[in-house]
Design a protein around this nucleic acid. Sequence first.
RNA 1: CGGGGUGUGGCGCAGUUGGUAGCGCACCUGGUUUGGGACCAGGGGGCCGCUGGUUCGAGUCCAGUCACCCCGACCA
Length: 491
Amino acid sequence: MAKVLASKDSDYAQWYNDLVIKADLAENSAVRGSMVIKPYGYAIWEKMQAELDRMFKETGHVNAYFPLFIPKSFFSKEASHVEGFAKECAVVTHYRLKNDPNGKGVIVDPDAKLEEELIVRPTSETVIWDTYRKWIQSYRDLPIKINQWANVVRWEMRTRLFLRTAEFLWQEGHTAHATKQEAIEEAEMMLNVYATFLENFMAIPVLKGVKTESERFAGAVETYCVEALMQDGKALQAGTSHFLGQNFAKAFDVTFATKEGTNELVWATSWGVSTRLIGALIMTHSDNNGLVLPPKLAPHQVVIVPIYRKDEEFEKVDAAAKDIVQKLRAAGISVHYDNRDTHKPGWKFNEYELKGVPVRIAIGPRDLEKQQVELARRDTLEKSFQPMDGLTDVIADILEHMQTNLLERARKRTQDETYAVDTWEEFTDAVKNRGGFIKAHWDGTAETERIIKEKTKATIRCIELDAPEEEGVCVFSGKPSKRRVVFAKAY
RNA sequence: CGGGGUGUGGCGCAGUUGGUAGCGCACCUGGUUUGGGACCAGGGGGCCGCUGGUUCGAGUCCAGUCACCCCGACCA
């Protein structure tokens, strides 16, 4: 096969970039850090959206839309929130252009300066809590459980397609509750929704945990997260869910009357996943031949490539292919029949491998004689011949197996690269030479965390929710520790 | 914001001491092909990032400027 990707083993970053471009997922656009998500990449995002949206609604949420622009003054209301986002906000200062009097082109009209500058949302807590104030008076108005699908802008210094772009697509849930307990339960529930989605739908195994103070969302009391381990041994935060306490209620003066007649501050959560998940998908399953898609996410689960020489051969093959298309569709399997005569079969084979289509069927005259098809599996790259009779069931079965196989494969890799170390020497060696999720004792101080990051580039990805109590001493400071935390280099 | 690199057909690149801008892929036409990125023949397409300078003459030399990419600090 003609090599179109850098080798995964020798240059992982380049392999990733090549794959995104060559599989037609996305490309860079005119503005640095902004990308065009191409139809194939967007189709994968739509699959994710559909399933997540279903899960959100099943857990009692409704969708709404809040504006892109946020008055600058809103941002100054919650101190740690401002601090966290101030450095990466795009700001709108004017509302009009005019012809450049000195030549061609247009300039910003200096007379059209906004009285109050607008922030392009990096996240929507502020505008939403300003709105919730108006919506909430009594305990009868609670809870409010809203999700929005939106774009956000964070002016990052360094960007990478899908993993970190200046503008990205995501969903953000924002809920308001009468009690602390209820808000915590909401945040935990949504973390579980994410974990379930990632494992069952994307076949990406995750650790569930909470962030340390320094990694916590700006404005949150507690940040829960799901962390996944990529093929190169680096961790990727795949989703976060925040218990916001009463921080935003305080900042935006959102109170409600209780049954007892007192006035109390509202409790909040927010949670989100983004198009970054497409990066996670790529770096969990794909190989040197290209993308590998779990069947549940694949825009096309099956592709059919006809093989023929003459017109009369094509007619026969075409009829058989169309018959298979119909049967697969009737069984709820999405199938793409590529009958273009502008590309040769070999070209198509490579193309669909690059694009990660789970199952490829080739049918030619020789197959018709034997009433069979050639079937290729993307996850194992195995080829086999299958009788046409009962093909639909065979494919349904393969798709199901592929979904679990991908998860199991990724789970095994993650488990193999999750390990404990106890000394500083082991730790530095592990970070430098092995990567993966490194479980080590930590003394609980931000200072130690900071020094470890400085010295090794590894950060605490999370404190696992189910981490067992275990007496030990901090891998760096030697001070006592009650449980291990998970370290890794991260995206 | 630091360090490095690159700007030349749609994409990837070459272009020597300054002398008519080239190659591969892609594209178009015709034909032969079609079971792992076909082949032959013909054809179209370029203000050489931008601005200024040196020169009879600049893709090439000089100055400036802009953009993008990679590596760091910051981050979903």
